[in-house]
């Protein structure tokens, strides 16, 4: 994934999309957390603004993937794409620049920092 501020916007966009999914889950509402429509609309506006901050091609790819898979970003785990569970080619694993997508499913790949 690309570096710095763009990466941060993309990751936050992804987190917010997961949040938007969760608040509509019946199970979530059952726990007792209620979210009003008004607040949800405001979150949708935030996501739109974030999307605008991304480079055009990245925003387009993200939206297309989200449409297709619900989750557009997949973490890389042990050399595997965590979206489609396929082994990633070695040459891809050493690439560090730009937005990297899974050659199998197309999801945007994300490498977790080692703690």
């Amino acid at each position: 994934m690309s570096s710095g501020i763009v990466e941060m916007h993309l990751k936050l966009l992804f987190d917010l999309d997961n949040l938007l999914n969760d608040i509509d889950e019946p199970k979530y509402k059952k726990i007792g957390f209620k979210v009003e429509q008004e607040e949800k609309q405001s979150l949708l506006r935030t996501r739109k603004a974030l999307l605008k901050k991304l480079p055009r091609d990245m925003a387009d790819v993200y939206e297309r993937l989200k449409e297709r898979y619900q989750r557009a970003i997949a973490p890389v785990d042990n050399g595997f794409c965590f979206g489609c569970f396929q082994k990633l080619p070695t040459e891809l694993l050493t690439q560090t620049k730009g937005m990297i997508t899974c050659p199998n499913c197309g999801r945007i790949l994300y490498w977790r920092k080692k703690q």
């Binding site: 987190d15 949040l19 957390f33 405001s42």
Partner: peptide, 11 residues
């Protein structure tokens, strides 16, 4: 922190 605060904004 950013995501948690966005969640708090929902209620």
């Amino acid at each position: 922190v950013s995501t948690l605060l966005k969640r708090e904004e929902l209620g």
